[in-house]
Design a protein around this nucleic acid. Structure first.
Length: 575
DNA sequence: TAGCATTGCGCG
DNA sequence: AAAGCGCGCAATGCTA
């Protein structure tokens, strides 16, 4: 690859029959342009990656990276314009008149299906085509320039630089997670289903589920009772004297009636069948892999969402089905009490950091004398971060307020700001969404002299609702930032591990993932790495080292650790 | 009959 | 209506 000057950035844009690649120098000035045919794109990117290791700038990561991964091409770094636009255009750290805020064509929050929607995105004839961000290279360059300007002139450029880099790395990880898939043993899943639900019987309910249904109907004294319709079930329950207000598990469990036990069993089984039964298995597991669609930045707080397959709701009951390939192991790791630790760091609360250091944070709170038991410490801490006002949790929060005033002041202030209609930001600068028009109208209406009592009550309730949201936003959002930094660094460390011989096993994940430790699952504060068995310890160390790095990147020298629970296993079964 | 709201429950 | 945050999904029932 010849180039007069190595590019720091390469911006990719779509053309009618391929791509335009524009080299930029570190200051963003254009160096040269290359027209690349669609069929040449993957090898072209691969050569450019190995020659210059640029940061790739593109409008939407799945639109570019999915196909590259399918061709076996990995890139180290990117800048996802769509995701970074959403952060920067909303961030309170960015100047109010920054040009990035006015570039509305980039306000695209909707997820774009990487597979089927990709061609449609550029099909202008199709009115049902989903709306995506601009795919043209000059539009991309202009937006990139606006984003760099927004960051450079921001109140704290360093934080936004970190956040946009982390968010973009997350986009790469999400695409790679989908490409690699989570190793899933369909036979084990089938065994669990059969064990819990009974034999699969086409056209009828599985045996044990049907049996539970019969026992429920007997207890209800109605052989035709409908169990899957909430209103009908509620009426049936009332007829036999079970005077519940809902049919939810927690309320039923408090009742003493012969119907309760079989009904709870039925609900549990029915849930498993409909959410993760044989139909789910047929639809979502192929060739030993579950490939969920991750949606980076899909939650307002910055957490990832998922679309299809319920990737974020795999019941623990089914964790046994997550099984490493022959010759591989799983490194299953989760962070202990991530959110309270993040709260301690962002508030600079050294007392809370002391309670957390080197041990179970809740045990540390008990040792400090603030509360009596671990269970109390946990419910109090959750209550403080979620805004509990009543019950045991609400009662315990004031004790934490006395023991950890700095941490509690931070979340209390975030709640007050939210109640007043203001916005709050995470540690790295992701800002909460502005209140909607209806919310603001309700608040101003409530201050008028002729406002009714009902209007005032409603406005107050909405204000408190928003306060609990902003209270939690800063903690949940900062925890999501920590997790992104963890993922990004872990991804790099794993890629640095050596390759193993290719004949290890059937390369069900494709060549890019068959010979090396790679991320296989991510859920808020938990990762699963699929690693060749001889690299298990190295992978586990990478997971721990990446966590330490994430803590330093976000919080510098603040004396707080992020201990992990790490297990090396063949199946992901917990406990 | 399609689209929307509600209920309930899985995950962090 | 789980006392208190953030999600996705299936089943059902109501409405246009």
């Amino acid at each position: 690859m010849d180039a007069a000057e190595p590019p720091a950035w390469i911006v990719l844009g779509r053309t009618t029959n391929g791509a335009l690649a524009v080299h930029l120098d570190p200051a963003g000035a254009e160096l040269e342009r290359h027209r690349v045919a669609a069929s040449d794109l993957a090898p072209w990117v691969e050569r450019a990656e190995s020659t210059w290791s640029p940061r790739w700038v593109w409008h939407d990561t799945p639109q570019w990276y999915t196909a590259l991964l399918e061709s076996g091409v990995r890139v180290a770094r990117c800048h996802d314009l769509r995701l970074c636009h959403l952060i920067l255009a909303g961030s309170a750290l960015v100047a109010g008149d920054a040009a990035v805020r006015a570039a509305r064509a980039w306000d695209v929050v909707a997820f774009v299906e990487p597979d089927d929607a990709a061609p449609a995105l550029f099909d202008l004839e199709d009115p049902t085509s989903p709306v995506g961000p601009p795919a043209d290279v000059d539009e991309a360059i202009a937006e990139f320039s606006r984003q760099r300007e927004a960051i450079a002139t921001a109140a704290d450029p360093g934080r936004l630089r970190l956040l946009t880099a982390a968010e973009s790395a997350g986009a790469l990880v999400a695409a790679e997670l989908r490409a690699a898939g989570l190793p899933w043993d369909a036979a084990a899943h089938d065994r669990i289903l059969t064990e819990v639900l009974g034999e699969r019987t086409p056209g009828a309910q599985p045996a044990k589920l049907a049996d539970a249904a019969t026992r429920v109907r007997t207890a209800l004294g109605d052989p035709a009772a409908s169990l899957d319709s909430q209103p009908k079930l509620l009426r049936s329950l009332h007829r036999v004297g079970v005077l519940v207000e809902s049919t939810s598990r927690w309320e039923l469990a408090r009742q003493r009636h012969p119907v309760v036990e079989p009904l709870l069993e039925y609900k549990k089984m029915s849930r498993l069948l409909s959410a993760n039964g044989w139909a789910w298995l047929d639809e979502w597991v192929h060739e030993g892999r579950f490939r969920p669609v991750y949606v980076p930045g899909g939650v307002v707080t910055g957490r990832w969402a998922s679309s299809g397959g319920g990737a974020l709701q795999i019941p623990r009951q089914l964790r046994e089905a997550v099984t490493a390939d022959p010759g591989f192991v799983l490194v299953v790791a989760d962070v202990a009490q991530l959110e309270p630790r993040v709260l301690a760091a962002m508030s600079g609360d050294e007392a809370l950091a002391d309670a957390a250091r080197g041990r179970d944070l809740y045990a540390g709170i008990v040792d400090s004398g603030a509360v009596a038991t671990r269970a109390e410490a946990k419910v109090a801490m959750l209550g403080a971060m979620y805004g509990a006002t009543t019950g045991e949790s609400g009662r315990l929060v004031p004790r934490l307020r006395r023991a950890y005033p700095r941490a509690m002041d931070l979340v209390d202030a975030a709640a007050r700001t939210g109640e007043d209609g203001g916005d709050v930001s995470t540690w790295l600068g992701r800002t909460s969404p502005r209140p909607g028009g209806e919310w603001s109208r309700a608040q101003s209406r409530a201050t008028e002299a002729e406002a009714s009592g009902a209007e005032e009550t409603r406005a107050r309730r909405w204000a408190r609702d928003r306060g609990r949201f902003t209270r939690n936003f800063i903690v949940q959002g900062t925890a999501a930032e920590w997790a992104l930094a963890w993922l990004a660094d872990l991804r790099t460390r794993l890629h640095a591990l050596p390759l193993v011989a290719a004949d290890r096993s059937a390369p069900r994940s494709g060549p890019a993932f068959a010979r090396q430790a790679h991320l296989a699952f991510f859920l808020h504060d938990e990762v699963i790495v699929h690693a060749p068995q001889e690299h298990a310890e190295a992978a586990a160390e990478a997971v721990r080292d990446a966590a330490a790095t994430a803590g330093r990147i976000l919080f510098g020298a603040f004396p707080l650790d992020f201990p992990l629970d790490v297990r090396i296993t063949r199946t992901a079964l917990k406990d």
